[in-house]
């Protein structure tokens, strides 16, 4: 059943990280995959639909926070 669990080594993802971890891990070697924040930002800017959605979601997040606080204060 668990034969599948080790199949990851043949995929295109995670290979280099895993090899590195295998060689030098042992303890919790946390390698941080750096997110290309700049690239993501450019992508959102480039496509207006994505931009709208991004704006909308941050708005709802902030409104949700306000709502939660309001409820808290109410109590």
């Amino acid at each position: 059943m668990n034969d599948f669990a080790v199949k990851n080594s043949h995929t295109l993802t995670q290979y280099d990280i895993e090899k590195l971890l295998r060689q030098f891990g042992g303890k919790e070697t946390d390698y941080v995959e750096i997110v290309d924040v700049e690239k993501n930002r450019k992508t959102i800017e480039k496509y207006p639909l994505l931009n709208d959605i991004a704006l909308a979601t941050t708005q709802t997040q902030s409104t949700k926070k306000i709502n939660k606080n309001a409820i808290k204060n109410h109590k």
């Binding site: 059943m1 668990n2 599948f4 669990a5 080790v6 199949k7 990851n8 043949h10 995929t11 295109l12």
Partner: peptide, 19 residues
């Protein structure tokens, strides 16, 4: 093919989620 790999990975991932 890569498709084979991908589905095997999917299966493997689901197995680990389920366990």
């Amino acid at each position: 093919s890569v498709a084979n790999d991908d589905f095997e990975t999917l299966a493997g991932w689901l197995v680990s989620r389920a366990s």
